[in-house]
């Protein structure tokens, strides 16, 4: 599904990722953990195609195709979904009409018929209940006045609506209390499927109690310092990142 090889990325001329390798297969859930500033969010943005993140070396293959040639919207339509760490508030853009536009853009690309207002409402109702997003929220401007938890739940709702092949969840757990975290995790778990891959980016092990990953990677100083099974997350919880970050730093 996703093959990242020797990825080097600079932001404003500053090297952030320095030779990152990552391979995620269909149906797998990978967690990427690491201290602040290790390049986790940069990886998320590069996968989604944000401007200003310059790939200076290496490659990203997605379903066997070179991802780097595609615009953010092409990637999204091809099935890449980024759940934002900080979902952007956009006053004046209604959440409902935004979601309908996005769903139809993706459907059109897949050769599916665009949904009319009624059909969209029906789809929305199904997905909405799963995440406890109420109708009133969807009538407001996108993310405006939403609490942290509401924003994150809306991100997962978008993911459910857009039905991606590769979902990248950037710090979806940050700023959530335990109840909100459970709701979000349940939503994510419901979306696990054999043909969907997920990359969970997180600072803390906490999220991984609810969404159990197949693999855990530690990102430190711009590359994967260590990979392992879910037990690696527990080890990090106990021992911290100190050692790993130090080792990679010295190696670089």
């Amino acid at each position: 599904m996703l093959e990242v090889k020797n990825l080097h990325v600079t932001v404003d001329g500053q090297p952030i990722l320095k030779g990152l390798d990552l391979s995620v297969g269909a149906g797998e859930v990978h967690a990427i953990m690491g201290p602040n500033g290790s390049g986790k969010s940069t990886l998320a943005y590069v996968l989604a195609g944000r401007e200003g993140y310059e790939v200076t070396e290496g490659s990203i293959l997605y379903q066997g195709r070179d991802l780097l040639d595609l615009s953010p919207e092409e990637r999204a339509r091809d099935g890449i979904f980024l759940a934002f760490q900080y979902p952007v508030e956009i006053p004046g853009v209604g959440t409902n009409s935004f979601l309908k536009t996005a769903v139809n853009a993706v459907r059109k690309h897949r050769g599916e018929r665009e949904l009319d207002a009624m059909e969209f409402m029906k789809l929305m109702r199904e997905k909405r209940d799963l995440l406890g997003v109420n109708e009133e929220m969807l009538r407001r401007s996108l993310n405006v006045g939403f609490s942290g938890g509401e924003k994150k739940r809306t991100e997962i709702l978008q993911m459910a609506l857009l039905d991606p092949k590769l979902a990248v969840l950037d710090e979806t757990d940050s700023g959530l209390d335990i109840d909100a975290l459970k709701i979000v995790a349940e939503g994510v778990n419901a979306l696990r499927s054999p043909d969907r891959a997920m990359v969970l980016i997180t600072h803390y092990q906490r999220l991984l109690n609810y969404i159990v990953p197949d693999k855990v990677h530690v990102l430190a100083a711009g590359c994967i310092a260590k990979s392992g099974g879910k037990e690696l997350a527990h080890q990090l919880e106990k021992e911290g990142y100190g050692d790993l970050a130090g080792k990679t730093g010295a190696a670089a």
Binding site: A48, G49, R50, E51, S71, P72, E73, R75, A76, R77, F81, L82, F84, P87, V88, I90, V93, F98, T101, A102, A105, V106, H109, Q158, L162
Partner: peptide, 14 residues
């Protein structure tokens, strides 16, 4: 830019 990217990341063309 952040708003533009957010919309594009959902499949809406530029």
């Amino acid at each position: 830019e952040s708003a533009l990217f957010y919309l594009r990341a959902r499949g809406i063309d530029e």
